[in-house]
Amino acid sequence: MPEFREVSCRVNGENRSFVVDPMMPLLHVLRETLGLMATRFGCGEGTCGSCTVMVDGQAVMSCDLPAGEVAGKRVETAEGLDGDPPHPLVAAFLDHQAGQCGYCLPGILMAARALLEGESTPPSRARIAEALDGNLCRCGVHARILDAVEDAARHMIRR
């Protein structure tokens, strides 16, 4: 039987502690233990990006990241973008109506946020596309998503 352990980290700015099998993928802790369902299960093997979250500012796929590895770290999920006013990325996605089914979108938001927060000047469209290559979209909303991220970049990066 796995050995359970207490893991403490910051999730969307709040201190959270949970007792889990530290080898359990972070995705399941977020969804089942913490009830943060915006991070989605898509493949469970790190090939689609639906479960992308940020850990200490980096975009990572939470479906194959052991929960024990986020101890003491900052975890950000799409729920954290739902403010009033909403985060510039959410506002831009709404402006551009950059979505159809939306299953992939929270993961894409987090991959985009990690990119934009790490840049000092708005990245090129090609660079944004490259940063999103690990995130699959099947509805074919890619072009709108790139438009939205470019737009958000202009709001988030003003130097």
Binding site: A38, L81, G99, G102, Y103
Partner: peptide, 20 residues
């Protein structure tokens, strides 16, 4: 009119997968 359900799909949990 913008989609009535898009915001929830971006940052919420509207799917049958998310029922609890």
């Amino acid at each position: 009119m913008p989609r009535i359900d898009l915001k929830e799909r971006l940052v919420g949990a509207p799917f049958v997968h998310d029922m609890a």
